[in-house]
């Protein structure tokens, strides 16, 4: 089964306040986490986003698309990245989420993915 681990953290309150050394240490922890997932053969993708203010939202207003600045959700913690993993069951997905560095200062949401159909020709 595939799950996506959505990583929510407070970018302004936490991430931007870290010193360079602290940020490097956090980065190393994420690398270790990704490496462990890779070693277990369960890593499908590991993505890290640029900060929330680089996001754009697109809606349709009448005939035209309307582009807004900033991320969709106005929550205290922002979506900073995601891991997509392939596991045997929800328990394994939760076990990985519990190891994810984000939970020390943020929240990890896990969502199961629908099995993708065969790729279009």
């Amino acid at each position: 089964m595939r799950y996506i681990l959505l990583l929510y953290q407070d970018e302004t309150g936490f991430w931007f306040r870290l010193s360079d050394a602290e940020r490097a240490a956090e980065g190393a922890r994420y690398e270790a986490f990704a490496r462990a997932l890779g070693e277990a053969g369960q890593l499908v993708a590991a993505e890290r986003f640029e900060p929330y203010y680089t996001a754009r939202t697109v809606r349709r207003a009448g005939d035209r698309p309307a582009v807004g600045e900033g991320a969709y959700a106005d929550t205290p913690e922002q979506l900073g990245g995601a891991f997509i993993i392939e596991v045997a069951d929800e328990e394994e997905a939760l076990a990985w989420a519990a190891r994810c560095p984000t939970i020390g200062h943020g929240v990890v949401e896990i969502r199961r993915l629908w099995q993708p159909p065969a790729a279009p020709p």
Binding site: I4, L94, G106, V107, E109, I110, R111, W114
Partner: peptide
Amino acid sequence: GRLQPSAAATTVREADGKPQVLDGPYA
């Protein structure tokens, strides 16, 4: 990818150095 409904989501935080598992999406 297409996600299963948010009602089936689970979130994990940390409390007292231990993972805390809650039902539902983050937001």
